[in-house]
Design a protein around this nucleic acid. Sequence first.
DNA 1: ATACTAATTGAAATCGCTTTCATGAAAATA
DNA 2: TATTTTCATGAAAGCGATTTCAATTAGTAT
Lengths: 336, 336
Amino acid sequence: MEKQTVTIYDVAREAAVSMATVSRVVNGNPNVKPATRKKVLAVIERLDYRPNAVARGLASKRSTTVGVIIPDVTNIYFASLARGIDDIAMMYKYNIILTNSDDAGEQEVNVLNTLMAKQVDGIIFMGNHIDDKLRAEFKRAKAPVVLAGTVDPEGDTPSVNIDYAAAVEEAVTNLIKRGHKKIALALGSLSQSINAEYRLTGYKRALNKAKLPYDDALVYEAGYSYDAGTKLQPVIADSGATAVFVGDDEMAAGIINASMESGINVPNDLEVVTSNDTIVTQITRPAITSITQPLYDIGAVAMRMLTKLMNDKELDEKTVTLPYGIVRRASTKSAD
Amino acid sequence: MEKQTVTIYDVAREAAVSMATVSRVVNGNPNVKPATRKKVLAVIERLDYRPNAVARGLASKRSTTVGVIIPDVTNIYFASLARGIDDIAMMYKYNIILTNSDDAGEQEVNVLNTLMAKQVDGIIFMGNHIDDKLRAEFKRAKAPVVLAGTVDPEGDTPSVNIDYAAAVEEAVTNLIKRGHKKIALALGSLSQSINAEYRLTGYKRALNKAKLPYDDALVYEAGYSYDAGTKLQPVIADSGATAVFVGDDEMAAGIINASMESGINVPNDLEVVTSNDTIVTQITRPAITSITQPLYDIGAVAMRMLTKLMNDKELDEKTVTLPYGIVRRASTKSAD
DNA sequence: ATACTAATTGAAATCGCTTTCATGAAAATA
DNA sequence: TATTTTCATGAAAGCGATTTCAATTAGTAT
């Protein structure tokens, strides 16, 4: 009792025209006499004909589908970018094949390959690190790739980001201005270039400018999770740091809650600044001062760039840097 | 300078076999002499041949792609389900076309149709409400549909859920046991059946059992967001309720924070219980007592059911009800 | 009317793969 | 050794569209 599918051929027959003509009206090709168009449209309506996108993809070599590689959908930061991506994609009539990579290099390469096999017209990649293997795959891919919220120090792949180094530098400088001498830096893995080459750089620049010594021991590599934050807190407390810049909001929440519970007051004993301005920063008590990023827009702009690339248009700029901000909340003392 | 694509035909020629044979080795068909297989594999390797999934899909009428309709990826609850879905999908070699519907009926129907046009082999639907139109589309679709974390009172569509009514009943009963007489119920729209027909039912059952009067005025329809919670809090405070059951974690967080800030102590003046046990429940202070749901598993099980359906197998049970729990945290006083 | 250009159509080739069916070769049975 | 079966393989017909190119019609200017 398989449901019967109506094909372009059925429409052509019923409307007494050729498949070519049906194809034209379906695709809005103007070279069709209005009367013919009307007739075909009527048959399409009557037969409830829906073009088969797969057949169309094979014939036209365009799938109107783009691949999106994301470390983990349940990560609000990346999910927010994904939302921006999908909205713009939908606006341009593209669909999204979404796959989680867990930030694992091997998995990323795999996923990239299955996406290419599915003939996606383009790819948006999100991740915390890009290694040579991945870069090689990007080059090899015949579909354009755009990075969203993802840095590649090599910079040959188009990307959309904020200036992480500058943002961290500014945030840390604010802390320094308020008199802090020992400022901890709580990040994810330093093997990820966003940490090693951007956040750490911004941190060091701020110290340098203020002629404060850089101390390795104040830089922590932990996971990007609430639990990682709670576990890291005692270590930070022992270090004697009076402020901490954190690379992830949930981790910051963990640090704050663990601090308060062990009698360390935030912000009086420890000021905390975080990176992503997700809803988490508003939920904690105290709420968390944070770098603000136009998350949705990072995704949206990346997708816009990709549509250009997919239509063989030139990009105005290969590396788009969106503005960031800093919003002060209760986890830091009032400025100056 | 278009990159040249290697087709099955090229491989066949180079290996001096027919396309059929190449197809067989690519698909792991056992009817190929080992020597031949080896030879073909070598050519595939040398030419770096990758089967075109679109062509394959057209020929075989299976796209190894499933559509996933989600209200909003940035909603942790649904994103968690999506993660479970994707992991299992990947395990079975399926890819996910993910689209946001914003819970809007019209958009849901649209999306469903473009998914069908893309020839997805199956669909997983998540949403807060299913109306007749949508149900009709499900029937019309020739691909199987499974609901994840989504109730349909009509119950003809296979689905995976927890027993929301029972969970709410238990949670509210716990509150009643601790002496509460006026318990507020903060939900999303009552036009959504999960609220109107399940949560509200569970709430009423608990009251009934305890012979407490049901009062319309204690049931609130708000949005599922942090801000909705902060806005709703003063209203709840005015109602004289001493406890509240909330349908969404972020909303619960808003209620808690607003309460504490206006001098209403949680749990002493107001006990709060929420529904989804997302990370938010651990981040707030006090942390929130919550119904626990196996979010990841709901998605995973739904995807497993879908794979069966896609392979024309019978389902053991059409409606799967996974176990829920209740985890006590600081937003309620210690039981009994 | 006549010739010429522009606007509409249709025929047929493709897109890259799967799959059925026929066939020759090799293995098993008599 | 003759006869069946079983294995491996290839030829070719789709799958359901797009797209090129030629043919036909309609329009417009002599």
